[in-house]
Every structure is written in structure tokens, then in C-alpha cells.
Simulated assay, not measured.
Amino acid sequence: MIVGIHQPNYIPWFGFFHKMLSSDIFVILDDVLCSNKEERRNVIKGSNGMISLAIPILNKKAQIKDIEMNNQLDWKHRHIYTLQGCYQKADYWESLSPSFIDIYQHSGNKLIDFNLALIELIREHLDIKTPMIRSSEMSGVYGEKNTKIISICKSLGAEIYLSGSGAKSYMNEEAFEDNHIKVVYQHFNHPVYPQRWGTFIHNLSIVDLLFNCGPNAKQYLEKQIIV
């Protein structure tokens, strides 16, 4: 049993869905404090390079599940306009964009609901079947940081915890071993795919792949599964 855990980012990058595809169960970590960056920001590619899209929020010192978006600002229209400017001539903008735009136009005030709606739509397009649950809806989970991750893994009967490679420098692997859980670090080699606007740029939002490659997008993740 491989368990992957990740905070619910805004239109996440490739590695988020690679981890999901590589897991038997994928946990959305939504009952921790908002980092004030990753959950509400990502980058796409336009004619002049990378463009950052950031969601304005109201209550910064709160758990992710309780964060509210500042919808008094016209950010949703601006994000739609920016996405259109970057991808309207991409091969799959016309067929895929209506479902994305619908989420922007009809989402409520909660950041978690908005991000999860987009994540569900993206994983549908990528045909990812991995069960996904929210940590806030799990019972018997306790602690913070490593303790919380171990608690989640034990609750799900995990034999392997699939961790992001960036956590290797501070991961307490002995604590996992003491609980009979093996830590495996995600090995993700970013694929190169057909991309508009000149020189290829890595580590963009997954929407760059979707609008450029459409139904062929999943193959660029499938080739990279190494656990």
C-alpha cells in the first residue's frame, strides 16, 4: 500500500499528479496552516515567458480548509483572461477550456473547494483513478508535521509513504521505520512535450500540458512512474 500526501495546490504542477498516479491512495492535506503561497499560486507560459497567477485570500492565518478567497477583487476574470491569452491558439483550448471556465465562474468563497474542483477536473482529463481523500475528514489522525504524516499512513495501513524529494533533507526516516513504514522519495524526471511560445519551460502548471496535448497528456506522466 503506497500512500501519497500533498497540500491542495492551485492548478498544480506535474509532480503533484505524478505523485497521485504513483500512489494507491492520495491524501489531500487540508487541515494544516496555509503556507500563504503554494495553495494559491502557480505559473503558466505566455509569449514573454512565465506568468504567475495568484489567488487573493482573506484569512491568511488559518488552516487550508478554512481559507476564503477574496472574491471582492476581480481576480477570476483576470485569470480566465490570462489563460485565454496564453492558450487560446493551443490545440486543445477550445475543447477543454469551457469546463475550466465554468469552475472559475461558479465557485464559491472557499479556496479548498475551488482548488479541489480544478484538481478533480484535471485528474479526470488525465484519467487518474487513484482514490483521493481529505485529511480533515479522516478519524483518529493526530499530531503535526512528521507525526501527522505517520498517523495518516498508519490509519490507511500504508507500507510505503511516497514523499516529495525536497523533504529528504529534513525527513525523520527513523520515526517512519519505527512504525513499520518505508519512506520512498518521488523520482520525477520532467518530460518535454509540445509547448507553445519558443524555448521549453519546465515546472509549469499542469494546464500547460493539457491545453497543448489534450488526450495525449497522460502518457507524459505514465512514462515517469518510478517508485
Rank of each mutant, 00 (worst) to 15 (best):
D31V: 02
Y142T: 14
D91V: 05
L116G: 00
R123G: 10
Y92S: 01
V3H: 07
M20C: 03
L204F: 07
N212R: 09
M20H: 04
V27Y: 03
D24W: 05
K37S: 05
V32P: 01
K37C: 11
D74A: 12
L53G: 06
L204D: 02
G198V: 15
V3D: 00
Y220I: 05
V27Q: 08
G140L: 11
I101H: 00
V27L: 10
L116C: 12
Y161P: 07
Y142E: 13
S47C: 14
Y193P: 06
C86A: 13
K19Q: 10
C86R: 07
N36P: 04
V27G: 01
K154P: 05
D30I: 04
N71F: 06
E124H: 11
H190L: 10
K148D: 12
D102C: 13
L204A: 01
I67C: 03
A90W: 00
Y170Q: 12
F176M: 02
P215E: 01
L29T: 07
N70V: 12
I225M: 15
L118A: 08
I119M: 06
F17E: 00
I152F: 01
S95G: 09
K154A: 07
P98L: 15
T130H: 06
L210D: 01
Q7R: 14
L209G: 02
I119V: 08
A217W: 00
